[in-house]
């Protein structure tokens, strides 16, 4: 039987008075899966991602992460056990590459020797030269920054990685390279990846399964092949065609 790592059941989230961001969404994400979430901007995909690590609260429904209900989690502990990669990497400009990679370890009080060793492993994993560890993010290229962003999220060897449009700002060549890199890392680590993207090709290339969202709802949740062959709704069909 496939082990479920994240279970989202009938979750809704409203912003302000009546802006429904996530509307009765249910998803079961299996261990080791690479799930991509795609949809037009404002469809609620980023919000859905933030519900998983508790950066946003839901109004109704239920979310289980690693078999624990959201309300049972200490939010700080939850977030430390989930890797989080944001748009444009979001590296802290006042910290060196190494310090960025070590951030979660550092705030968790991990021994400095271990931090040092791990930084070198991570540099190796995301293909960043050791000589660049003491540089500051400002001197890195966009692609390098995003690699460091991924390394930073991987520092604590999390079982789950959440990636919020991590490649959105990169040129096509770099983007392709990092996509391959992400796939490698996914294979090596065996972690569950949940990635939000607005690029259909990327979603279909990387995703073992793809969730297509529209207006806060899941239109279809299936493998890329099944979606391509049997679009569940007219809207999905149109969405694929438009692309």
């Amino acid at each position: 039987m496939v082990e479920t790592v994240i279970k989202i059941a009938g979750v809704s989230k409203t912003y302000g008075e009546n802006k429904l961001a996530v509307d009765n969404v249910s998803l079961s994400i299996a261990k080791g899966e690479f799930l991509t979430i795609i949809g037009p901007s404002g469809c609620g995909k980023t919000t859905l991602l933030r519900l998983i690590n508790g950066l946003a609260d839901f109004d109704s429904g239920n979310i289980l992460v690693m078999n624990r209900h959201m309300h049972e989690w200490d939010k700080v502990q939850l977030r430390r056990s989930i890797g989080y990669v944001i748009q444009n990497a979001g590296l802290f400009p006042h910290l060196s590459v190494k310090q960025n990679m070590q951030f979660v370890m550092s705030i968790s009080g991990i021994d400095e020797d271990i931090q040092e060793k791990r930084a070198h492993e991570l540099a190796d994993l995301v293909e960043i030269a050791v000589s660049q560890l003491d540089e500051f993010p400002g001197s890195l290229s966009g692609g390098q920054q995003q690699r460091v962003g991924v390394a930073r999220a991987l520092a604590m060897k999390p079982q789950i990685m959440l990636l919020d449009e991590p490649l959105g700002a990169l040129d096509n060549v770099t983007r392709r390279k990092i996509q391959i890199g992400l796939q490698k890392i996914h294979n090596k680590t065996g972690a569950t990846f949940v990635m939000v993207t607005h690029d259909l090709k990327e979603a279909f290339t990387l995703g073992t399964r793809v969730a297509i969202m529209n207006k806060g709802r899941i239109e279809q949740f299936d493998t890329p092949d099944n979606i391509r062959e049997k679009p569940a709704t007219d809207w999905v069909n149109q969405f694929i065609l438009d692309y």
Partner: peptide, 23 residues
């Protein structure tokens, strides 16, 4: 963006202040 990143990685409010916001 930085505050959000730090929070999302599990920094406590005081860690966010002293390690991110203040510097």
């Amino acid at each position: 963006m930085y505050i959000d990143a730090a929070k999302g990685m599990g920094a406590t409010p005081s860690q966010i202040f002293f390690r991110i916001r203040w510097p």
